[in-house]
């Protein structure tokens, strides 16, 4: 029974990680679309913050993937 609960917990954690990664991807995609739009219109003030924000999200996403790998190995 405990084994089943542990498996369920593991499954929920993996689902949460995938959901988080997908949300991060969606936000990055939106930021990219907005940046392209502003770039095309010659507006540059929002490009730097958007790039930093995207890199920050990427770090979070990679951390999730690394955490998942360690979890899998354990």
């Amino acid at each position: 029974m405990n084994k089943i609960k542990a498996l369920e917990k593991q499954n929920n954690i993996l689902s949460f990680k995938i959901t988080l990664a997908m949300i991060i991807f969606a936000v990055q995609l939106y930021a990219m679309a907005m940046s392209v739009r502003y770039y095309m219109a010659g507006e540059s003030t929002a490009l730097w913050p958007a790039a930093l924000f995207s890199i920050l999200l990427l770090v979070v996403s990679i951390s999730v993937a690394i955490f998942d790998r360690k979890h899998k190995e354990a």
Binding site: L14, K17, I18, A21, M22, I24, F25, Q28, L29, A31, M32, S35, V36, Y39, L47, W48, A50, A51, S54, I55, L57, L58, S61, I62, V64, A65, D68
Partner: peptide
């Protein structure tokens, strides 16, 4: 999950390229 993270990396590279 790995594919999504790779996609995120590509988007971040695109942002840097735009800057």
């Amino acid at each position: 999950l790995k594919t999504v993270v790779a996609g995120s990396a590509l988007l971040a590279c695109g942002q840097v390229a735009l800057v």
